[in-house]
Amino acid sequence: MNKSGPIAAACTLLLAGCLPPPPPVPKTTPIPYPSRDTRKVSHPAPRAGRLSVIDLSSFFELQQTGSLLVYDVRPGFVQAFGTIPGAISWPKGHYDAALATHRAEIRAAEKAGKRVVFYCTDADCPDARAVASRVAALGHDVSILEGGYADWKASGLGD
Rank of each mutant, 00 (worst) to 15 (best):
F60Y: 13
Q64T: 08
I106E: 07
R50S: 03
R129V: 06
A123H: 14
L69D: 02
Y71S: 03
T121I: 06
P46D: 03
V131T: 12
D127H: 12
F59S: 03
A98P: 00
F81L: 08
G49L: 00
L99N: 07
K111N: 11
F60P: 00
D127W: 07
A112S: 13
Q63P: 00
P44F: 04
R50K: 09
K27R: 09
A104V: 07
A108Q: 11
A109E: 10
V131W: 01
W90S: 09
P44N: 07
H43S: 11
H140F: 15
T29P: 00
P32Y: 04
C125K: 06
F118P: 04
K114Q: 10
S133K: 01
V78Q: 13
A128K: 01
T101H: 07
A80F: 14
L138F: 15
P30A: 02
D96R: 06
K92I: 10
F81H: 08
R129F: 15
T38V: 10
T121R: 13
V73N: 07
A136T: 01
V117W: 02
P85I: 05
E61P: 00
T65G: 03
L69S: 02
V142Y: 04
K111S: 15
Q64E: 13
I88D: 05
S35P: 15
A98S: 06
P46Q: 08
D122Q: 13
F77L: 11
R134I: 00
P46G: 00
R39P: 10
A104R: 11
R129D: 02
P126L: 13
S52K: 08
Y33R: 06
G66S: 04
L69P: 01
A100C: 06
K27H: 05
Y71I: 11
P34C: 04
H43I: 08
G76T: 10
T29C: 07
V53L: 03
A108V: 12
V41A: 12
R50C: 00
I54Y: 00
R103A: 08
K92R: 12
H140R: 03
D124S: 09
D55M: 01
P126R: 04
T65F: 08
V41T: 12
T28N: 03
I31Q: 02
F60H: 12
S57A: 07
A123F: 15
W90G: 06
F59L: 03
A112M: 14
D127E: 13
E105Y: 12
I54D: 03
V41K: 10
G66N: 05
D122Y: 14
I84V: 15
V70A: 01
K40H: 12
E110L: 08
V73G: 09
L99Q: 09
Q63E: 10
S89T: 09
R36W: 12
W90K: 04
P32E: 00
E61G: 05
A123D: 05
V116D: 08
G86W: 02
I106G: 12
